[in-house]
Design a protein around this nucleic acid. Structure first.
Lengths: 132, 132
DNA sequence: GTTCGTGCAAACGGTTTGCAACAAT
DNA sequence: ATTGTTGCAAACCGTTTGCACGAAC
């Protein structure tokens, strides 16, 4: 809790009650929730929380570098609180998104990539989760 | 033209004038247009074409396996007519999406991936296009 | 008291859908 | 005749925005 206040302050974010509640949730889940899903969840412990505040707050967190937007679901952006680089696996049946540790996959450039200044990359996999 | 009619028929699609016009466009561009962009372009040669028909047709093409939906742009789905597997590079400045040949990048699994039945994957890169 | 954050409702933009007119078999 | 396709408009849904109220420095 105290750490979270500190964490927000370090990123230049004024730690209001709403922002704390949202931050607590998004950093405690290992899922990849949409803004509306965050709203639904946090509302249960913070009933007055408005949808607009959730959207604004999540965008603020992204701008300040606390979390990342990911294009992994159709129709909605999802947010990813894991700060270290990783890959993603999407279960085509459930739509669930799994983090794949960075070191599980080796990506090597073999062909010509001149003219492309790659700042960031990730492997996006799709398929079926067999167990779990 | 004749080939396109044939192509559609082979995929179980009745080749109407609208569908032909949309197919001609999407298979001739190397870009990754959104449905609205397809509409704008094809409308110039087919003014009566409605937006709904474009959306319906593109979805039909996806269902029948002619083209692919890609989650590479925020706010809209883009369509990809290239049937062979490839990776993508997104210019963060312009938003332009570039195809990267499959053999340019080697992806090797190093870690544990049990439980994940990977049916499909691609590398998504972001950065700046330096020349063109 | 000025700046910043919140909540509400309205607006917005991409996409889907219901429906009537129409074309194809 | 039946089935499938088109165009229009309305509906839908995720997201942003304008604005008034309220809290914090």
């Amino acid at each position: 809790m105290k750490d979270m206040i500190q964490h927000l302050r370090e990123h230049g974010i004024l730690p209001t009650a709403q922002r704390l509640a949202i931050a607590e949730f998004i950093f405690s889940t290992d899922g990849h929730p949409s803004a509306d899903e965050v709203w639904e969840k946090v509302k249960s412990t913070f009933p007055t929380l408005s949808r607009a505040t959730v959207y604004n707050t999540l965008n603020l967190f992204v701008d300040k570098g606390l979390i990342k937007r990911q294009l992994l679901r159709e129709g909605t952006v999802v947010f990813d609180a894991v700060s270290t680089a990783h890959h993603h696996f999407i279960d085509e049946e459930s739509g669930r998104i799994y983090d794949i540790p960075w070191d599980n996959i080796e990506v090597k450039v073999k062909g010509e990539m001149t003219g492309f200044d790659v700042r960031d990359y990730q492997v996006v996999m799709r398929g079926r989760r067999k167990q779990d």
